[in-house]
Design a protein around this nucleic acid. Structure first.
Lengths: 328, 328
DNA sequence: TTGAAAGCGCTAACAG
DNA sequence: CTGTTAGCGCTTTCAA
């Protein structure tokens, strides 16, 4: 590998001068600058980032922790973060944590040891204590970790309310809710939103609330059980799109027509929701904007020493597709 | 940050001894080892990987280039690579290239400057020339780059043949093919497999072959046009699952029933294929195994200086789902 | 305007 | 068995 020394030698100057030329720091005579630049070009020299990092204590790398890369929500998010960080000359690292505390810890250590400059975290298991011990800038995404960690979220409760309102508006009379995983904070929030809308209805039964897991197959089964136990159900608000697609499948397997006999709406707004038949109505999060915002906040926190904790909340938006339709 | 010096001081030994204890290299008296270890624990010391990398010229990082993180195929693949690399103590870096030569080049430079130890590349645009200039170990995935780059692929042509055979076996009489993007090598291979099976059929028309893009919406349109122009078509082999789901949607929008009037089979075996209604028959690639294999080959190449170029080919497997069914 | 030299934190000869 | 020392490639005072 060619080093700064090689360049210095070829240009007939000291390594300090080469460094100055590269970084545009300090004064350097135009003619020697010329010589240095041509030496750089001639040798196709590229500085060693590791050496730089060692000196500076910074690596120009940013990481994103996601619980499940297989859920399309996260690739869409990752895409946004990647775009922003790349634009600013950072290298992007994606870490899949499975919402596993051990894995998160391992990653956190590894990244700190590599002088990663900042981390964006989507996690339900990580603790404020763990994060508090870390000096690396951190942003919480989609969920809130602690009061002194900046976060980017959406209005989950209000969004859930709107979802249920929409089901009512298309004529649903008995509306159920399939929940998300218990340990995820959004689960409680969306459940609250659902309850806001139904708890005073005379038809409401607590058994209309069914627990769910973070995956397709479980949602299929939960839906089938729900619809078998309660044949009167004509609307379901599902915790997220992935599970919503499972609900679609469950209904189909029971021979229940969506949307004629049953309306389904979910939450997230991932692209696959458009591709199903029927396509899935949803409360869409502005996924790309969320990722962008988080990345920008992180960069600000990295570069401004006087940064103060922020809390950003985005608004979800109803997207009506085929799985909910006005009934006559 | 606590450094090796702090540990040395606390333990009353030299930094060299601390280093030896950490790395288990060379002899060290049990009792001093004891002292060092307790000092490490007491200070919660973690070695600086950047300094290590600088000295060793290696970073314990591995990267994966994918053209489109939003296609579920790649997260599944990434998952596999991540698992293997993590197991071996490497940090995994995912790079989204958009099959854009400039982006690939930028990433390649950035990673080299960071002393990344190896790269797995899925790319149709990257050239052997570019890769040839790089000393970092590289594995080509899903596509072949050059003759002296190891690769992991699947039997695309034979798989395509089997897909068409399957369509025939369920009773299809007029079979079309929606191709992949022109510049991707697999496009030609799968097309050849299709042609192997149909070119001698008396019903075959070259207009049964329609060009496609790497996305859902285009596939919907291509399918609608195809089925409108050729109402006799009763089977379609689609280049990949994402586009296959588009074909499903296209047929549905025309009111054509799948599989009663039209059978559809695609290629890849991504999980979402199970979730659609009807679910999508496909030639499944062993995605996880492919990723695992590539990662293992890369690690071998990194660690064995006497490594020789390899070419691994996996076999795809027919998965019959609802989109193809025997017709009476 | 430029060079010499120290040092970022760690490892690996080389002595002892 | 352990310490001293040089050095990985770069940046930045400090002098000149």
């Amino acid at each position: 590998m060619t080093t700064i020394k090689d360049v210095a030698k070829l240009a007939g100057v000291s390594t300090a001068t080469v460094s100055r030329v590269m970084n545009g720091t300090g004064y350097v005579n135009p003619s020697t600058k010329e010589k240095v630049n041509s030496a750089i070009k001639q040798l196709d020299y590229r500085p060693n980032d590791v050496a730089r990092s060692l000196y500076k204590g910074k690596s120009k790398m940013i990481a994103l922790f996601v619980p499940d890369i297989m859920n399309p929500f996260f690739p869409e998010l990752a895409r946004a973060v990647e775009d922003v960080t790349n634009q600013h000359g950072y290298t992007f690292i994606l870490c899949n944590t499975d919402d596993d505390f051990e894995k998160e810890q391992t990653y956190l250590n590894a990244l700190q040891q590599k002088s990663v400059d900042g981390i964006i975290i989507v996690s339900s298991t990580i603790t404020k204590e763990l994060v508090g011990k870390i000096s690396t800038p951190i942003i919480a995404l989609d969920r809130i970790i602690g009061s002194n960690i900046s976060s980017v979220t959406v209005n989950n409760r209000e969004g859930a309310r709107q979802a249920v309102q929409h089901l009512k508006s298309v004529g649903c009379k008995r509306i159920a809710h399939i929940c998300g995983p218990e340990h995820v904070s959004n689960t409680a929030k969306r459940l609250k939103g659902y309850l806001d809308e139904v708890k005073n209805e005379d038809w409401f039964l607590s058994s209309y609330i069914v627990p769910g897991e973070y995956n397709f197959e479980t949602a299929v089964q939960a839906t089938k059980k729900l619809l078998t136990d309660h044949t009167e159900i004509d609307g379901i608000f599902v915790w997220n799109d992935l599970m919503g697609i499972g609900a679609l499948k469950g209904a189909e397997e029971l021979g229940i027509n969506v949307p004629d006999e049953l309306s389904i709406i979910a939450f997230d707004g991932i692209t696959v929701g458009e591709t199903t038949t029927p396509s899935l109505s949803t409360m869409a999060q502005p996924i790309y904007d969320i990722g962008t915002q988080a990345a920008e906040m992180l960069l600000e926190q990295i570069n401004n020493s006087g940064y103060k904790t922020k809390r950003e909340e985005f608004t979800v938006q109803l997207i009506e597709r085929q799985s909910t339709r006005k009934r006559g």
